[in-house]
Design a protein around this nucleic acid. Sequence first.
RNA 1: GCCGACGUAGCUCAGCUGGUAGAGCACUUCACUCGUAAUGAAGGGGUCCCCGGUUCGAGUCCGGGCGUCGGCUCCA
Length: 650
Amino acid sequence: MRLELPDGKILALADGATGTDAAAAIGPGLARAALAVKVDGEVRDLARPLPPSPNGQPSRLEVITNRSGDDALELIRHDTAHVLAEAVLELYPGVKISIGPPIEGGFYYDFEFPNGVVINDEDFPAIEARMREHIDADEPFVRQDVPVSEALERFAAEDQDYKVELIEDLIRNADPAHPLETVSLYTNGRFTDLCRGPHSPSTKRIKVFKLQSVAGAYWRGDSSRQMLTRVYGTAFFSQADLEEYLENLERARANDHRKLGPQLGLFTFSDVSPGAAFWLPRGTEVFNELVALSREMGRPRGYEEVKTPQIYDSSLWVTSGHWDKYRDNMFVTEYEGRQMAIKPMNCPGHCQLYSMQRHSYRDLPVRYWEPGLLHRREPGGVLHGLLRVRHFAQDDAHIFCTEEQIQDEVAGVLDFAFATYEIFGLDVRLELSTRPEQRIGADELWDRSEAALQRALEAQGLDYVVHEGDGAFYGPKIDMHMTDSLGRSWQLGTCQLDYNFPERFHLVYTGADNAEHQPVLIHRALMGSYERFIGILLEHFGGELPLWLAPVQAIVLPIADRHLDYAESVLTRLTDARLRAEVDARGESVSKQVRDAELRKIPYLLVVGDRELQDDQVSLRQHGQGDRGTVAVDDVISQLGRQVNRRSRA
RNA sequence: GCCGACGUAGCUCAGCUGGUAGAGCACUUCACUCGUAAUGAAGGGGUCCCCGGUUCGAGUCCGGGCGUCGGCUCCA
């Protein structure tokens, strides 16, 4: 067989040659360092025969070593997961093992511990020590392809119910034309696991590893099933790499908005209202700037601001379908014998508002925008700083349009979204979510809606992934996602196409034919919730918000008390120019004032002393950039003003 | 909601095996009036998350609740 190496050379080997043979043929050093081979993109064990190339062309072959980056890390992390299971089985007799894949940054393994056994991170040292023994023992990973019946018997005999279930599912899900005959098992030491592979040659290839945390995780991700104990860990080829990884994690934690927010005096939380932020004056400034941005950008795009009630009769929620599907997640109240609910979303209110007017086709699209306050009864376990709250405001709009206008409107929403994200330099990922199992409306309407959204995405040549079944109960949607400081993904914007609410609310417009027609509804939010958006922004900027958004844009630092009057006069001029500024009047040393202002990440520090006072100047210092020299007060004001007006990011 | 951990001053944390609470920062006052990342001294400040229990005695042990954190499930 012929193989093409990364440098373009062609390697000829006998048929049936293994990955080991290939590595050895290239060089003895490589053979020693080899962990696996990658053939036409598929990572395979060294010991396995290389697959015949599909079309007579040479297969592309790459030998994976510890310098192969993620491919190599994934291998040893998967190896480490096996060693973890091996150690846990020995230390906790009766434990049932389920699955243990490599993941971004590490691996996990899920266990069911025997009754009454609870483990936590205090148990890690003992488990790690046992793992270390197996690694030092240099146990080879041996692959065996065995008949399914044999595998089933084996795991049933060991009471490994989860493995039995996995094999049974593999059998069930196999292509009927090619029923499953064998499954692969990997053995290292006395431990054998059902596993697709691949693995490195032996446990000795794991250099450094660390168990990180335990967590609960449902078997097969199904909340109606057994909760297992998941142990997370990671592995690297060197101690230095591990340490760098841990330091990065630590740094990311410093950028956590839950830390930055209170630190910068933006918001806090209190037990008296879990899941709802208390916005301090500085945070409220930031919040209001974002609302102003939405308003300012929406106006020329034809959005009209409206205000709708917070609390509605349950009949409205029955009409919208929320009463059936989401009542448990709404705050319900009652007075004067009427059942009421606080709005968890704005759409029913906007539909109600639309329905109370007459609309001509000439008026469409109607675009109602409202930075509406919403409350959702989120279960306690899901709350997360500003990113998942019970009380929040959305930059929510509802577009009522004709079917012919859908393409343009969705395109307009996407343009608006990208224009917004561009201001902050945010990269978003697009997801198209299609009809969920629990839904309202005819399938034919869903067909049209999904197709329309897909066309809009493709017309603009945008990259997106499809999430089957993740749509809203009333329509499919395009979601825009961002990642937080710890790599978790959060939805910001959404654009949802809905034929259902217009029908349920009997929405109409008068067409050119003087007959009544039903409009289509587009739900959209771009920042998502202002709360979540601020959380993401704080992490994105590491707390160093751009000048236009900074809660305090400039602080005047008097060198001595005799400069206080001058400092105050500079402050007045800054404030008159609509800049958010302060004077540090504490009488501390300049060094101390500078330090504190830098820690508060205030963009500009204006130091004033005898020299500046004389010439109507300030000594300008920019956050993180140091001294910028002496500048006339008027120049500072106009310079900052320009920067604010441009909403520049620098 | 589920699994695990945690909950001490505004913040960050210390408080060993139960004997009635401590530091740094912040804050107040006084002195210093200072030229770009911490001037010094003194002082005020705590239902040790809440409710029960064990005990002569609970911040510390036990049970329940609430909240937070890490995950899982969910997220209109």
